[in-house]
């Protein structure tokens, strides 16, 4: 089956990416929070999401993200976080896929910052529904500020990874 070979190679790569992002997620879980504001964190695992968006098909990046979030929530035993991860992540993923279509890898840091901002907006929308009050919107400026720093960081990391690894472009 010669035509099946690249599929399996791809599947292995995606599994590897998912595993790496899960490891990053678990490591970050052990670190103490930088600032005691709910929702603020570095999001190391998103380095892989950014990398996948730029080097794989949109559905493949979405797959890596979904599996990571689902298994990650099992690892952390934190079901509430799953809602926030998903609402933020989906919005972020859509935005970043769109940006990666209209620009190239050189724009990965701004794209990542915009992605982080979309992630924060998704989180707050979810929080409004979960908490049943609009009071949480007052958190948005802090989340966006922390998010844009975290986004610049993850974007830079992803850029470094892309520069070092020559991925098989389909």
């Amino acid at each position: 089956m010669p035509e099946r070979k690249p599929d399996i190679k791809r599947l292995t790569e995606l599994s590897l990416l998912t595993a790496v992002s899960l490891i990053m997620f678990v490591i970050e879980m052990q670190l103490p929070p930088i600032v005691p504001v709910p929702g603020v964190k570095l999001g190391l695992a998103n380095i892989i999401t950014v990398y996948a968006v730029y080097n794989y098909k949109p559905q493949e990046a979405a797959l890596v993200f979904t599996v990571r979030v689902l298994i990650g929530s099992l690892f952390s035993g934190n079901v509430t976080a799953l809602i926030f991860s998903f609402s933020g992540g989906v919005l972020c993923l859509l935005g970043m896929i769109l940006i990666s279509r209209i620009s190239d890898v050189s724009m990965i840091v701004p794209a990542s910052v915009i992605g982080a901002a979309l992630h924060n907006i998704g989180q707050i929308i979810a929080a409004v529904f979960v908490m049943n009050t609009t009071a949480v919107i007052s958190y948005l400026p802090y989340l966006l500020f922390a998010g844009s720093i975290a986004g610049a960081f993850t974007g830079t990391c992803a850029l470094l990874v892309i520069k070092r690894i020559r991925p098989p472009k389909d």
């Binding site: 209209i102 724009m107 701004p110 948005l140 400026p141 500020f145 844009s148």
Partner: peptide, 26 residues
């Protein structure tokens, strides 16, 4: 051109949210 827009948007998010955070915090 698209690149400029992306850079401007991301810089604006950072600066505006930063200024707003400092303002709200104080």
């Amino acid at each position: 051109m698209k690149k400029k827009i992306l850079i401007i948007i991301s810089a604006a998010i950072f600066l505006v949210s930063g200024a707003l955070s400092v303002y709200l915090y104080n």
